[in-house]
Structures are given as C-alpha cells and as structure tokens.
Design a protein around this nucleic acid. Structure first.
Lengths: 302, 302
DNA sequence: TCGATTGATACCATAATGGTATCGGCGCGA
DNA sequence: TCGCGCCGATACCATTATGGTATCAATCGA
C-alpha cells in the first residue's frame, strides 16, 4: 500500500467516477481500475461494491478514504516542511556575537537575513570570544561573530569587516581641530585605555601600536567598553586609540581623528564549526558577507 | 514520495548504516543508496550529509525521519483497521427484534456472534414489525428479527426457526392430564386471546385456527404479551393457543399440550435490505442460521 | 602500508506502471 | 423497443522503475 495507490483510491471516492478520477489524476481510466482492484486484493477487502453501472463505497472503503486523506495531507505537509527546512527557508539559528558587533555589522546582518528568510528563527546571544569557541564546538551556537585570533582548528571563518583604528581626543584638545594625527603625537598624552581583562585584544593592539611608535603610553584611566572609553575621552580624561565603531554613537566633547600610521584594522569574522553544513548557516554567512561588503566605517564624522 | 521510499529512508536513519538498513529491509545495498539519492533529488534537499565513510543525518533528514515514522505508523494502522472492518472483525451492527425473540433465538445468536466477533459492537433494539421494516429501509437498523409476512420488496430474509403452536390449559383443567389435544376440543372453553393491537399476527393465526376447527372462540380475556397470556391461563381464566415460546418460562398452574392439528408453525426470520452487502451482515445472518439450526423448541416441558 | 569496510557506480533482468483498443452491460431517448 | 452512449473491465503492448550482481574509490584501523 503506497501513497500513489491511496491518491488513486481517494480520487475515485471523491469523484465517484473512475473516468473523472482518472482525468483528475492525469492518467487513463484502465490503469486506475487496475490499481483499485490491486488495492482490494492486497487488503483482502471490498472497497467499492460494484453495481452494474455505478459503484457504492463500502464502509471499509469509506474508512480507508478518511485515513488516506489524512495520510496524504500528512505526507504533503511533511514534504513541504522538509523542503523548507532543507532549503533554509525555515528553522532556527543561534548566533553568538561579541559586544562590539551590535554597533557595527550585526544589525545590518539581522535585518537582511530577516528580510530574506522571514520564517527562520534567529536567536542572538552576546558572549565573549572564548565562550563562543566553546559553544561553537558544542553546537550550542551555530555561528559566532567575533574578532580573531581564534585558536580552535575545528572552526572555519570568513572575514566580514575590518575596523580601522581612530584616535580619540577631547574637543578642547590641541589636536581636536585636525582631521589626522600620528600615534607619536599622542606620546605625551594621558591615555584612556581598554582594560586587559575586558578587551584583551584591543588592549594588546593599542599597547603594541604605541610601542611601535616608540613610547609606552601613560595610562590615566582604564575602561572596558567602547562607549565608556568614548565618554571618558569626551570628559577630558585623556586620549585614546579605538576601533572606529566609536563613531556609531555621538558623544559630546569627543573628536575622532584618522591615524596617519594606518595601523592594521581590527577584523570581525563569522565563525562556524567545520563540519556544519547546514543550509541555514550557509545562507547566514552569505548574507553576512553581503551586509559586510556594503558596510563602510564612517571614518570621520562631524 | 511514496511510503516505500520513506520506509527505506527511515531504515537508513534508524540503522545509521546503509548495509544494515538494506539487510533489515530485505534488499541489497545499491538499490537502497539509489532510492535515498532519488529521494534527495526529488525533495531538493540534502538529507544525509555524506562524510568520507560515515554519513550524518541533517536537520532536514531528522525532520523527515520523524514525519516518516508517523506516516508509516499511520499507514500500517489504517491498513489493519480497514482490513478488520472489511472482514467484519470490527464495526457496528444494529439489530431490531420483536418482543418474542429474546425468549427464543436472540440470546443464542448474540452469544455466538460475540464469541466469533468480539470486537463488533452489537446494538439491540426492540421494535415491532412495521417499525423494523421502516428502519431497515432507512438503514437505521442493519438487520431485523421478526415474524413474516413483511410487505417491502426492498428487503431480503431468511427463515431462522419455526415455532409450533401449543395449547395452554390451566393445571386443574380436564385436558391437563393429556399430552396432546385438538383445537376442536377447546371449542367450548373460554379463551385467553392475544390482542389484535398487541400481537396482530398471532391474533389472526389463532382466530383462523379456531375457525378452521369449526368454531368461533369465546374470548374471556385479551392479553398483549406471551407471558401475560401464560399467567392468565395459569390463573384459570381460560385456555389459549400460543407459540411454543411460552415454555421458556415456567408458570405455576399452567400446562402445555401439543396440538394434534399441527397448525402451521410461526416462522421467525432475519431481514435485511436487499442492497446491503456488508460483511458484518453476512456474518450475522450466517451465525443466526447456525444458532437457529441448533435451537429446538421444547415441545412439552414438565 | 595493507586489508577490511562502507557507500557509490555500472550494467543487467524483472516487475510494475501506464497507454491504446476494445468489450460487455446497462440506461436513456427517439 | 431499439439503438446509442456511457461506464467500468479486460487484453495487449511500451516504458519506466526497481532490484540484483559485480565492482570501484576512499577511508580507517591494525
């Protein structure tokens, strides 16, 4: 008993007429007659009580008709659902992201993905780099948005954007009138510095940049987060070197300057488990790349 | 997408291994591989992500597996149910019966049918002849147990039993010592008579029997039901001619005598609509005939 | 590095399915 | 009442689908 046979039988009962049923099925009438006969033989049950010209559906036939309809509906639904899930039109994707991404590419990615796949459920979880690596390996999150380097070899990644570093100075600072500075020009300034604990990567990069420029920065204040750094600089506590994300929020008393040294920008990457071949994931990384390519860091806003 | 393919896919997922799945399905491995490939092509979805040696079931594959199992279970259940209904092992049968049958064949029929088809629901409805005819034509009851004649030509019937008539006399009556009497010997006796309204058929038969014997019965008392007639005779109100059913219940002060005239016995028949080809019905009439053939009227109990 | 295991492929035989032509039987209308 | 038309069944043929055997390619473990 397969679904085709049930479709045939269902059509015959629905139409009450072999000829019309055959037409509706797109086959000829004789094969239809034969299939019904075969079905009856297989079940050992009379489904249609043949009168001389018309037939009458037996009680057993009626029962089979009901069940067949339910089965056919279920099969159709299953097929559609599987197809949707398989093509990534539906499903669920858990995304990890570090704290800076909501100010840069994350919104753009989410908006685009939602537009393209409105039936996919996105779950967003802020977590730090090492947690993301663990969760990616465990399969707790499907994709992570973070800053390299990442240690695990079981993970694959693609670079989305590269954030340049900007120099932040108070609005009343001597450099504030300029559009560009060098790192060396900041050598004597007190620094507002990303803390090693809160942003180890940026901390390390800024320290390295200063040392390359030939000085050890004098640190007036540590801060964990980008907007804290920005507000401290705006308050006149010192200068800072920061990823350009800082321009996303306007901060009174703060001026952003391009850095003439052109330090290597900070990449943000999408990361996933190497074995993960989910269509959702592929769609997500594709859209993430698209969103990233249309994202431009605002170098120097007012 | 048919059920066979789903069975195949289900087996592969369940076994996690093409070879073992093929064995469990009783086919060779290559056709199985091909069917899964075909299924994936049809759905346009990767169900199994092939690693180098092993495969991994994708999310879509897992969904299809769950749905497939449900569909296959449903199909199996449907097949079993239809088969049972079609072979008359299950279902529902509504039986009409006239008042006298519970004292004769009805219990035997029901007991036998229950034993043979324990899962068939029997509904028993006492109704009089003309109501049964109507309900049979309407399909409200499937089969009727009643006494001919029946008028409708749309009904078929089979005779189950023939109840002989007995003469009933009070125990202190002159005839009570005998085992046999003639109808004529009752000519001078007061009669307890089945009422025309309550039992028109028996009434008519008894009247006819008396007239054939050459007298018009003097009616001392009318009664509707067999046991009422019996109790009136037992109370000495008169004599009666009654179907032998009366011997089913012992009544003090009552004697039953065979009737030497051998009046035509009263048949009880099973009746059904001519077009009704239900297996349940056929089974019922077969068992009713069997039960009837082993039923013997107790001619003359103590 | 070799052998065993696993899924994929190639090729063939058979079974299943569908199409065309036609039949037998009944009902409707002239 | 006699066709004529409609309906489902049957006979026969072409095509497709399915399953089997032999074999391959790749990988994993000893």
């Amino acid at each position: 008993m397969d679904l085709r046979t049930l479709r045939y039988f269902s059509a015959v009962v629905r139409e009450g007429h072999f000829g019309r049923a055959a037409v509706s099925l797109g086959i000829a009438q004789p094969p239809l007659t034969r299939q019904i006969q075969k079905l009856e033989r297989e079940l050992g049950v009379v489904l249609l009580h043949r009168g001389q010209k018309k037939f009458e559906v037996t009680e057993a036939g009626l029962l089979l008709y009901e069940r067949a309809r339910r089965l056919l509906d279920g099969a159709e639904q299953a097929e559609a659902d599987v197809r949707r899930l398989g093509t990534g039109e539906t499903g669920r994707l858990v995304i990890g992201f570090v704290r800076s991404t909501p100010f840069t590419i994350l919104p753009g990615i989410v908006v685009r993905f939602r537009a393209a796949f409105p039936d996919v459920e996105l779950e967003l979880r802020e977590m730090r780099n090492p947690d993301q690596v663990k969760c990616l390996e465990n399969g707790i999150i499907d994709v992570g948005l973070l800053r390299p380097p990442i240690s695990s070899r079981a993970l694959q990644m693609v670079t989305l954007i590269r954030e340049p570093f900007l120099a932040l100075v108070p609005a009343d600072h001597a450099l504030a009138a300029r559009r560009t500075t060098t790192i060396r020009q900041l050598a004597a300034e007190p620094f507002v510095m990303y803390s090693r604990a809160g942003s180890p990567l940026i901390h390390a990069r800024v320290m390295e940049m200063c040392r390359r420029a030939g000085f050890e920065p004098r640190i007036a204040q540590y801060a964990d987060q980008i907007h804290t750094v920005a507000s401290f600089v705006g308050a006149g506590l010192g200068v800072a070197l920061s990823p350009s994300t800082v321009t996303s929020f306007s901060m009174p008393g703060l001026r952003c300057l391009a850095v003439a040294d052109k330090p290597a920008p900070l990449p943000v990457v999408a990361v996933w488990r190497t074995g993960n071949s989910s269509v959702l994931l592929r769609n997500f990384t594709r859209i993430a790349r698209e969103a990233a390519s249309s994202w431009q860091p605002q170098e120097l806003p007012g």
